[in-house]
């Protein structure tokens, strides 16, 4: 029988430099917890998940910028953060591609499950929308994440 690995034991100690980010990440974790436990009265069902998407986006963006733009953290730490779920690797992979620099969530570019096989409304550039049209997508509450905006 293989040894039973607890979550604690299986986790490697974070690489160097983690303590610099720890406070901010804890804040994100607390915000996430609040969002998860927020009351749902008077809200649409899909609206409930918006803050969760938003916090995920912010946290991923934070780590992405620290690694790719400010070059503040090491490769080891970055990998460790991705592995431990502090950032969404799929989302970051999209941000590196042209045209997706501001993408809000990967669900918004998923064309498979939409009625007209198209992306989300938030991917439409502002100038192609009607004058004064105010949008907020159903998936994550994004108000527009086209790269040109």
């Amino acid at each position: 029988m293989p040894p039973v690995r607890t979550a604690r034991a299986s986790k490697k100690a974070p690489p160097e430099g983690f303590d610099d980010l720890e406070d901010t990440l804890l804040e994100f974790a607390a915000a996430m917890k609040d969002a998860e436990n927020a009351p749902h009265d008077g809200k649409k069902k899909y609206e409930m998940v918006w803050p969760i998407f938003q916090i995920t986006h912010q946290r991923s963006r934070y780590i992405y910028e620290l690694y790719y733009e400010k070059e503040a953290i090491s490769r080891q730490l970055y990998d460790w953060l991705l592995k431990n779920g502090y950032a969404d690797a799929g989302l970051i992979a999209k941000w590196k591609k042209q045209g997706y620099e501001k993408l809000c969530c990967v669900r918004c570019i998923q064309t498979k499950e939409t009625n007209f096989r198209s992306t989300c409304i938030c991917r439409v550039p502002k100038e192609q929308l009607k004058e004064g049209q105010d949008i907020q997508c159903v998936n994550c509450g994004c108000r527009g994440c086209s790269s040109g905006d």
Binding site: D20, D23, T24, Q58, E65, K70, A72
Partner: peptide, 9 residues
């Protein structure tokens, strides 16, 4: 200011 904090914060 802590340089590790995000701009929004």
């Amino acid at each position: 200011t802590n340089p590790y904090t995000p701009w929004d914060k």
